[in-house]
Design a protein around this nucleic acid. Structure first.
Lengths: 208, 208
DNA sequence: ACCTGAACACCGTTCAAGT
DNA sequence: ACCTGAACACCGTTCAAGT
């Protein structure tokens, strides 16, 4: 089969999902595709660029289903969840996507959508940009915590949890159960609700 | 001079700050210290562990100056800013710190502090944990956006900004100036204010 | 135009040998 | 106990040669 950028990116994504971001090498991708390493360079300028294309593909997988009569809060929540949903399709690729600046056209579509929603709700352009940035920061930070792993290098599985001193860390030890409990959905929804209510309170009175 | 873990971590931090995270290699660190590569392994089990120690050092550099009579909002803001301030001292190390889970004792100190503040303000343990997580997600996401670079691999400087179609991207093109303006402080403060107000509104009526 | 092997300058880590 | 050189199995990318 013909070697194309599409196929190369697909192979890279598969590799990342199966073995993690640190497993990706040009040589691995090449053998995956049954070609020589250098053949890749006819379709992709560098490894860094390849990962950019991976990021682009992941980001363009964000799906909006704009509900017609939705309130501002509902629309904001829906878009934030759609963003986070890519984690479901590409759990490990999400990290590489999120940690490199997207310059692609399709990567700008969520931004366009979000700005339109906020402007329609009465926010100024400057406010809209600020709000989107705050939400993106929160979502990206949530994804990073949820995946819990560096995109580049996996942390050692060394479970040398050093036993905290209850006198020095009264709160942490008291809430250890809660702190160790993993419920990414609940965590995400909690912060999302905080931000959503905050922008509702910020919304100009003059509803269009 | 004696080779110690301290010196190795310091050398790694210096290397990261000077040349970026992707420049760190055991061999580079060794030559930096004027010793053989393998000597490092007497004090550090692996490269991954070395980066964990880097993260620990960076995180433990967070400085709190607990203002006595401060309001909840002021305390929360102060702690969030203190977290973000490590970016000033370790601009590039921050990214490696933030993208690997901290299991160290000193890394738990900010958490302890934040939980204490929130509990003193009347929040339950479960609420406090949720709130801290939301703030951490926001702060980490902000840092990631601010540094704009993957911890592992630098993005290509290829400025192939592909010229958006104004018909397809009316908001983005209209707000291009605002979107390209870089003011990380203002961005951070905006979102911080959103979250702070949100938890103020959430606070239980019964003030202790 | 597309493919490719050899080669270069790198990696992290194991192992056996030194002191 | 600490250091270390050689070696192994990898990297990304250049270059010159093929078709």
């Amino acid at each position: 089969m013909q070697l194309t950028r599409e196929r190369i990116v697909t192979a890279a994504i598969g590799l990342i999902e199966r073995e993690g971001a640190e497993a990706v090498s040009m040589r691995r991708v090449a053998t995956e595709l049954g070609c020589g390493v250098m053949s890749l360079y006819n379709h992709v300028p560098s490894k860094s660029a390849l990962l950019d294309f991976v990021a682009e593909r992941v980001m363009s997988a964000i799906e909006f289903s704009p509900v017609p009569g939705a309130s501002l809060a509902d629309e904001v929540r829906a878009q934030a969840r759609a963003f986070r949903a890519i984690t479901r399709s590409y759990p490990r690729c999400t990290m590489v996507a999120v940690s490199r600046p997207t310059t692609s056209v399709t990567g700008m579509l969520p931004m366009e959508h979000a700005l339109a929603t906020l402007r329609a709700a009465g926010f100024s352009g400057v406010e809209a940009v600020h709000i989107v940035r705050a939400f993106v920061a929160y979502i990206v930070g949530s994804l990073l915590r949820e995946m819990g792993v560096s995109p580049g290098l996996a942390p050692d599985g060394s479970a040398h949890r050093p036993a905290l001193d209850p006198a020095e860390f009264p709160q942490v030890t008291a809430l250890a159960g809660e702190l160790l409990r993993k419920d990414p959905d609940a965590d995400f929804e909690f912060g999302l609700e905080l931000l959503t209510r905050a922008i509702e309170a910020l919304r100009p009175a003059r509803v269009s």
